[in-house]
Design a protein around this nucleic acid. Structure first.
Lengths: 130, 130
DNA sequence: ATGACTGCAAAAGATTTGCATGTAG
DNA sequence: CTACATGCAAATCTTTTGCAGTCAT
């Protein structure tokens, strides 16, 4: 299966790279549509899947009903807010950074390619909770 | 809002308690339907949501397209296999057991009620991968 | 009695797919 | 040319919802 260049795919990937949050397919569609008015949702989904398979983006399935996509493919962890549903990259910290290594030790290679998703309350929702 | 007893809800809860895996609403429906042939999917969903709100079960949204439900509400972590999609409880280990406490320290209370989901390869898929 | 719960069917939301046409190589 | 990519629309899948009838308290 040969992958051919496509302007739509490039636009989707470039859009994703500009975002620090983790847009859904719908959000990608609405934004890239401004550049390609004839763009269809099907094309967006097909390309997001393809880019995921190619390892250029990652798909975050956080269970809020929609998949989210992230152009940052470096191993990093996410926090999903139980309250507002936002998806944030977790702030850097030594422990978190080492967690993957720890996990490797814990599982003795039995579980490969793990990544961490935290379900909790984001900073903003924590504030509002008080 | 008063919660009244319901035979269907009891059956759903009891079924869930017999399972060590984490069935979807569909699976719950098909099984409990054997006891209540007139059972409807809507009732299953409504009761699974209600039981979740009551804290009797937990809802696992692992992003495979369907929600999974778990009658074990004790804090524990899950592994979701990237390959076969199964949802397993993670095997007990000291580090994992302490991880929540560590997370509390890391986040200084900024992130509350977190739980862990690992995305990786289950034991079986790791074997087949070699 | 009252209001919660049920079954049924329709609706809603996200994603996938079939097909004819367009386009990269 | 040939096969991959697109746009469009229909189909699929999961979950939610409206409503009339039923049941628990």
């Amino acid at each position: 299966m040969i992958v051919k260049k496509s302007k739509q795919r490039d636009a989707i990937y470039n859009f994703l790279k500009t975002r620090v949050d983790h847009p859904t397919a719908e959000v990608v569609y609405l934004n890239v549509k401004q550049e390609f008015p004839k763009l269809s949702l099907g094309t967006v989904y097909r390309n997001l899947m393809l880019l995921t398979e190619l390892g250029q983006i990652q798909r975050l399935q956080i269970g809020d009903g929609s998949d989210h996509f992230d152009a940052n493919v470096k191993q990093h962890s996410h926090l999903i807010c139980r309250k507002c549903g936002c998806v944030c990259d977790l702030p850097y910290c030594e422990e978190l950074n080492n967690l993957d290594e720890k996990m490797d030790n814990i599982f003795q290679g039995k579980i490969q390619g793990h990544s961490l998703v935290f379900y909790g309350l984001c900073e903003e929702c924590c504030k509002n909770n008080q």
